[in-house]
Write a protein that binds this DNA or RNA. Structure first.
Lengths: 250, 250
DNA sequence: CGGTCTCATTGATCTGAGTCAACGCAGCGA
DNA sequence: TCGCTGCGTTGACTCAGATCAATGAGACCG
């Protein structure tokens, strides 16, 4: 019995390593950018555990005690905030290689809900450990700061979108953003499945679900995209991009 | 000549210290929270210099090379982004004790413009030095992460505002936010001068300047505030707060 | 396989905010 | 002092997107 356990231990360990940062397909987009093998190993050790979520499950909720950030290994998430008067608003959609939970750092509790929109898996990164490790691995520290900063820049972009674009333009910006992120992951930039409902997309873009539906239909009628429920195919990528560049003409 | 310089040096140094973090009125809101005297001294050394700006001057521009973040010592700023099609959008207003420039970390260049809305003074914090110091002062590292996270949370709040609130509610949220920030600085929470024009406020809130003007007039007619150009006096703070809580009833 | 549930589409109507335009006011410089 | 300029206010009209309502399309399940 004991012997069997010991002999199996290395196999288990090997399995863990196979899933770890060094082999992760999301690696390039996640934290471990430009680390040496040795540093990478230390990051592997840092990642406490992986966590699987079924579609619809919460990764964390508003008010939960903050102790970790999460790197999405596979899957698709949304984050939303609930206002005091009950309305909710989707603040973002996150896909593999992206980091969730940085909103929790400032007040030691999460300020939004993170919900899996499909079966997903995340790497749990205990935040205290990350801070500790980054004092001795400057590359990691630097990269983490970049990740947080990128989140700020991204949010500014959304604020701009919400503040200045019209309904159809918002949809176009949303689709182009997805396209570009899928491309960065080696997926098709012109063909993908929306994981979110029209309602969730509308909430994110500051529109009603009917408006989202109409805008999609209109883009289809213009011959720029093809829509079948959640399946989207971009048939004129340049056409979409031009819509944003010439937006002021309207 | 030489002797004179030498004898003056300490006096200058003293003057610098008088302005430094330990004595700064913005201290509590800025970076040096909960540092020991010795750590505070090291932060003082870190702050490379102070920089004065006249009203209307840029602290930095979109595309400028990033090398420092800025702590506002006195004054009031706005940040804005310009879209590819020429429209611009105000992403935030910053006051003393707040940090500017974190958008520049991710891409080594600033992604927005920071403009003084009144004569201002900032502390220049070379970012490389900050990162270096924070590897040996955990409190500083922690606090900096909190500051970045708070920026993310704040942005989520604005996204919610832009996505779900109606014009008048946005104005109310804006005024309450200013009120609360002035209160945190020991100024009156019910009486202050707007530093921004109606156009800038409108851009920030995703409204046109006429709508901002109308909404202010309407709030005044409702007896909640008093408006005289840029001077604002909140006469019913609770009334304003209730407007946001009961917003869904509309 | 029919019933139910969720999500999406489309049409008709309404309305809040945008647009256009006129006017007022304060500050500034000649 | 006057006229200019930038900013703010207010009114009349328009329109993009919200609202209300009906219908359709899958997915799931007993």
């Amino acid at each position: 019995m004991k012997v069997a356990n010991v002999s199996q231990a290395p196999a288990v360990k090997l399995h863990v390593l196979k899933d770890a940062c060094a082999q992760c397909s999301a690696r390039e987009l996640c934290l471990p950018l430009g680390l040496t093998d040795e540093e990478l190993q230390r990051l592997d050790d840092l990642v406490g555990s992986r966590q699987k979520l079924k579609r619809g499950e919460h990764l964390y909720r508003y008010g939960d005690h903050f102790s970790a950030i999460y790197a999405i290994k596979v899957g698709f998430f949304k984050t939303d905030v609930i206002t005091e008067d009950g309305r909710d608003h989707v603040t973002g959609f996150q896909m593999n290689g992206e980091i969730l939970g940085m909103d929790g750092i400032s007040g030691d509790s999460y300020t939004c809900n993170a919900i899996a929109l499909e079966d997903s898996e995340v790497c749990v990164i205990p935040f205290a450990d990350l801070e500790h490790l980054s004092t001795t691995v400057p590359t990691l520290q630097r990269h983490f700061h970049r990740v947080m900063s990128r989140e700020i820049v991204r949010d500014h972009g959304i604020m701009m979108l919400l503040g200045t674009l019209r309904a159809e333009e918002r949809l176009v910006a949303f689709l182009l953003n997805l396209s570009q992120r899928y491309a960065a992951r080696g997926y098709s930039p012109t063909e993908f499945h929306l994981r979110a409902t029209r309602d969730e997309i509308g909430s994110y873009l500051g529109l009603k679900l009917e408006t989202v539906s109409r805008a999609l239909s209109q883009l289809q009628d213009s011959g720029l995209i093809l829509v079948q429920q959640k399946y989207i195919r971009i048939t004129a990528l340049d056409g979409l991009k031009k819509m944003l560049q010439h937006a002021q003409a309207c």
